[in-house]
């Protein structure tokens, strides 16, 4: 089997200095990633453009922090054609609900509410139907200590149960704000094992699912819409001739 291509879809940058980007992509490459998504906080005028540095695929991404679920639709419309990955920060029942019901949302992250894990069987079904990925933010396990880490591990366990049951796409992210917050894919797999995720699941959460999200917007030139393909006219007539004879 070919080596999977690993992605981390949640890296935050305070500056968009090319030197910093270069260093970040160097480290990502060194750790074994093939793509990272740079999150711009919403309302910032400049978005990091998607580009390739060496072999690293830098994706542009936006993290929408909304105060009210009714604002989600408008915010998504604003960024839909500008970025590769649209991430919504949850944290409240109505926002989580609105995010999983919107097929334009790629990732829902930090969905735990102060009371519980913020995710349930209803949301899980919706997320699976609309292909919205749930993010397991391993930065919590790395950075938090004591009771708060215990809570986030408990939430991850609950989310994992639902994700397995309803076949919801999920990704593992580091939520890094500096290069020292990044972790190599294998370390991410080990951290995910702490809340019961198997190796295979963790690998798919680091490579297949984020890879599919990364490819979603990078359409080939002839792309029309989901499920529609323009065939070469000569090849169509050939095929048809073959069928009719």
């Amino acid at each position: 089997m070919a080596e999977p291509l690993f992605y981390d879809l949640s890296i935050h940058l305070k500056s968009e200095d090319p030197v910093v980007l270069k260093k970040l992509s160097n480290l990502a490459q060194h750790l074994g990633y093939s793509g990272i998504a740079i999150n711009s906080v919403d309302n910032s005028s400049k978005l990091v453009r998607s580009m390739e540095i060496d072999t690293i695929n830098l994706l542009s991404s936006v993290e929408l922090k909304i105060s009210n679920a009714s604002k989600l639709h408008g915010q998504i419309g604003k960024y839909l054609n500008k970025v590769d990955v649209i991430t919504v920060v949850g944290g409240n029942e109505s926002i989580n609900r609105a995010a999983v019901e919107n097929p334009n949302v790629d990732v829902l992250t930090r969905l735990a509410t102060p009371k519980d894990n913020g995710f349930n069987h209803v949301l899980a079904k919706e997320a699976a139907d609309h292909n919205v990925a749930i993010s397991f933010d391993l930065g919590d396990i790395i950075h938090l200590r004591g009771g708060r880490r215990v809570h986030s591990l408990m939430n991850f366990r609950k989310n994992l149960l639902l994700v397995r049951k309803y076949d919801v796409p999920f990704i593992l992210t580091s939520n890094a704000v500096s290069i020292f917050d990044m972790r190599a894919p294998r370390e991410m797999i080990a951290l995910a094992a702490l809340f019961g995720m198997t190796r295979e699941e963790a690998i798919s959460g680091l490579s297949e699912t984020p890879g599919a999200i990364a490819l979603k917007k990078n359409h080939s030139p002839g792309y029309i819409m989901e499920g529609v393909l323009e065939l070469d006219s000569s090849c169509v007539s050939d095929d048809l001739r073959g069928e009719h004879v």
């Binding site: 790395i142 370390e187 080990a190």
Partner: peptide, 18 residues
Amino acid sequence: RAVLASITSIKGKRVLFH
């Protein structure tokens, strides 16, 4: 591995285990 990955800083200096 998870233990090593959960180390973020040593004496205030930020580190990254790989």
